[in-house]
Write a protein that binds this DNA or RNA. Structure first.
Lengths: 244, 244
DNA sequence: TGTATACTTCGGCAGATGCCGAACTATGGA
DNA sequence: TCCATAGTTCGGCATCTGCCGAAGTATACA
């Protein structure tokens, strides 16, 4: 935003401007969801080059939203404090019209079963759809579960295979940068209702985002439910081999 | 922000961008503090012309942050729902570094009494300084208390006198637009520690903002305390006739 | 020592946007 | 009926900033 005539720089506005960019916003969301990440991973998530991601992260760090953690040779950026994700949540609540009674009254009742079957877990898919997509990816050897960094919090990690890269690329998910995802954050996230893991982390988020872009799924105006569209049913059947 | 290549428009980012402009941010803050206001008043607060304010308000309304209330001939814009002010608060918490232990350790201990004496009450002055400034304005007949719209929530209202307009103008606070402030929002706000009213509302916010610009007071990195600078001490003595 | 990898900095381009002057609309009162 | 006031719309300007290619740094490993 231009700064005409000497305006006093408003801290509120400048903080908001850090989140006001789509690339930075997606980075922050993924950091809130998946924990500290490397620059290249965040670049892949935001679909920008490493240079651009680096600049964004520098700005976020200067603004105090993220911190740079130096572990041996690799940097990682993480959210600076819980207040950041709280602010993201508060902002997110403003996206919907939020006239709750009117929204409820206006909501169509028809696709109720589909709503329950497909949910989003903050930024990735959950519910039956999330589990089925994950199962399909494992079944077709597009991702492989690894006990790479076992521990109490992360029960494991998925690794993207070469075929998986090609598959996602054909789906328009990222591009060559996905290589960096290959050895990083794609972790299982236990589903509450299905009692089985679904794909979380940045990879899960990237898939969910892409399915939204393709209009295969649509976020419902209220809550976390997502709806599988007609095109989505066909697409998921054809490309993922699942029958939603 | 440019929208290169076809990026999926992120609702989180676009919501944040509504707050990311200093003019809009100040309008939202004042609306949260003082309730629904007319376009001209908000223009005065943001220090922009009515045209610009109108455009900003249209954007905010389209984004669902404010609503336009039509009362007879005069429009008023107000916050659409409480979530907006909650988001403002959440964002505000991010302005300070907030590494609380480190911030506390790094904070200089010297001007402690001054910190307590001067505080800000969201966006206007509170504490001893707030009360003294208000008293001085009343004493010099620059504002006059009116029981214009008495009620349980707003115990009254201040009205800016003609002398008051000139005084504020000489301080560089607004300009001729302050005329519109004259018949609107400048309400007393009970101070918790001083047990006496200080000047709240948009007028109070405008004064606080101007004192910040003049570097007469400085917001401390943490909390609501403000510090009276050396120049501020002299200025407040000379112009307001108070001895902080 | 040289190479590979991860990241950062620099320079320049392109598009978005805030700002205002001027003109237009709508409403209420002289 | 005409005018005054509040608000909006339009056009153009200036500036900001996100984006990338290219080049520069730093660290580990052969």
């Amino acid at each position: 935003m231009p700064n005409y005539g000497m305006r006093s720089s408003d801290p509120l506005a400048s903080t908001a401007s850090l989140i006001a960019d789509p690339s930075r916003a997606s980075m922050l969301v993924v950091l809130a969801e998946a924990g500290p990440l490397a620059v290249s991973d965040l670049a892949a998530v935001a679909r920008v080059t490493a240079q651009t991601a680096s600049e964004h992260l520098a700005r976020l760090a200067e603004g105090g939203l993220v911190v740079r953690q130096q572990t041996s040779r690799f940097h990682r950026y993480g959210l600076a404090h819980p207040g950041v994700s709280e602010a993201l949540v508060a902002l997110r609540k403003l996206t919907a019209p939020v006239d709750s009674t009117a929204a409820l009254a206006a909501a169509p009742r028809a696709p109720f079963a589909a709503e329950l079957a497909a949910r989003s877990c903050y930024d990735h898919l959950a519910g039956r759809l999330g589990v089925e997509v994950t199962d399909a990816l494992v079944r077709d050897r597009l991702i492989r579960r690894e006990s790479w960094n076992p521990g109490p919090t992360r029960s494991g990690s998925y690794r993207l295979t070469k075929n998986g890269i090609e598959f996602l690329d054909s789906l328009g998910i990222v591009s060559a940068e996905l290589r960096s995802l290959r050895r990083s954050f794609a972790h299982p996230c236990m589903d509450r209702t299905e009692r089985r893991p679904h794909l979380g982390g940045a990879l899960g988020a990237a898939i969910a985002t892409r399915l939204m872009e393709l209009r295969w799924i649509e976020r419902l105006p209220e809550g976390r439910a997502v709806r599988i569209t007609k095109a989505g049913g066909a697409g998921l059947r054809e490309r993922f081999g699942i029958d939603p």
